[in-house]
Amino acid sequence: MSPKLITPPEAAAKLGVSLRTLRTLSTQPDGPRVIRIGRSVRYSADDLDRWLQNRMEH
């Protein structure tokens, strides 16, 4: 089963942050992982859930 990929606006809405904040977070070593498909940027919904859960635990 392939992961559900979401666009940056969908990912930002899921996290409750702006697109600019999402981009900034994604450049950090411990930020959400970006998946590039050609020139398109996507995020795995499952990875975002795990990343957010880890942030809430720290």
Score class of each variant (00 low, 15 high):
Met1Val: 09
Met1Arg: 07
Met1Tyr: 06
Met1Gln: 07
Ser2Ile: 13
Pro3Val: 12
Pro3Leu: 12
Pro3Gln: 13
Leu5Val: 08
Leu5His: 07
Leu5Gln: 08
Leu5Phe: 15
Thr7Val: 08
Thr7Tyr: 09
Thr7Asn: 11
Pro8Val: 01
Glu10Trp: 00
Ala11Val: 05
Ala11Arg: 01
Ala12Ile: 00
Ala12Leu: 04
Ala12Cys: 03
Leu15Asp: 06
Leu15Arg: 00
Leu15Pro: 03
Val17Glu: 04
Val17Met: 03
Ser18Asp: 03
Ser18Met: 04
Ser18Thr: 14
Leu19Gln: 06
Leu19Cys: 00
Leu19Phe: 00
Thr21His: 11
Arg23Asn: 11
Arg23Pro: 00
Thr24Asp: 15
Thr24Gly: 11
Thr24Leu: 15
Leu25Pro: 03
Ser26Gly: 08
Gln28Gly: 04
Pro29Arg: 10
Pro29Asn: 08
Asp30Lys: 10
Asp30Val: 05
Pro32Phe: 02
Pro32Glu: 00
Arg33Phe: 03
Arg33Met: 07
Val34Met: 12
Ile35Arg: 10
Ile37Asp: 04
Ile37Arg: 08
Arg39Gln: 05
Arg39Val: 01
Arg39Leu: 03
Ser40Ile: 10
Ser40Glu: 13
Val41Leu: 10
Val41Glu: 04
Arg42Asn: 04
Arg42Val: 03
Arg42Gly: 06
Tyr43Pro: 02
Tyr43Cys: 02
Ser44Thr: 04
Ser44Trp: 09
Ser44Ala: 13
Ser44Glu: 12
Ala45Asp: 11
Ala45Ser: 13
Ala45His: 05
Asp46Lys: 13
Asp46Ile: 11
Leu48Ser: 09
Leu48Asp: 07
Asp49Tyr: 02
Trp51Met: 05
Leu52Asn: 15
Leu52Asp: 13
Leu52His: 13
Gln53Val: 01
Gln53Leu: 07
Gln53Asp: 10
Asn54Gly: 13
Arg55Pro: 04
Glu57Pro: 00
His58Phe: 13
His58Asp: 13
